[in-house]
Design a protein around this nucleic acid. Sequence first.
DNA 1: ACATTGACCTGAGAGC
DNA 2: TGCTCTCAGGTCAATG
Length: 266
Amino acid sequence: MPELPEVETFRSYLESTSLWQVIERVVLPSPEILEGISAPQLRSRLEGRWFQSTRRHGKHLLVQLDTGEWLTLHFGMTGYLRHFERTKETPAHVRLMVDFANGSHLAFGCQRKLCRLSLADREEDFLATKGLGPDVLDPDFDFAAFGRALEGRRAMAKSALMNQKLMAGIGNLYSDEILFQAGVHPQTRVSQLDGEALRRIFGAMKEVLRTAVDLQAEFGKFPGHYLIPHRRKGGECPEGGELRRTKVSGRTSYYCPRCQGDRPAS
DNA sequence: ACATTGACCTGAGAGC
DNA sequence: TGCTCTCAGGTCAATG
């Protein structure tokens, strides 16, 4: 479930807990989540070094070492990050444990093994290898860039928003929220959207994601007119009426037939 | 080239 | 109560 707002929250958490401490020991209990590097290799590149800065691109967290290399973390859908000051706690499903010389430690884990770890020389190389589009909260990703990303696409609006190659950061939950706020049916084809609808989607995208980041992705704190807190079987639209549940390219989607139309515009 | 589907993964919750 | 089955969703390979 970690989408852009959750990953941004993890980024600032790591930033405020884990920088500038010498890494004494690294444990990698699940080497199968490593991408392009072996456990012994990764251990030897981390031990004795320290984290010096963080970045985020879409749903990826990048942590720069003092060597200049980047440790990249992807949370899959159940990923988490936890830092412990003193007690040596080991949460369930830990995939990376970092023990710092100051006695604290950082755990990265995920219940399902859909999280990933890798090491990259340069940020640009990593993004290019992954084929990621621009981060959707990057100020350079403006309405013109948004339009270019969607140009000539025939996919459904929801699928396009979730396509990390077109733009990075939006997943299943936030795509539903964005389209709800924009009043657009999730199965509307991108090619059917007029300029005004594109504007509304773009505006909702920035607004929803900024709000979620500010609220540290805690759904309980979301504004009353947001869909996400109501996004469950039998859930009610904040404007009244029952939400509808359907599949859009294999993903469970919620929408309001009154606010977004009961079938895709064509 | 682009769009869509299924596999991967594991535990919670549904349903019988 | 206890078992089995479905489903959750991020990504990527396979298929259309």
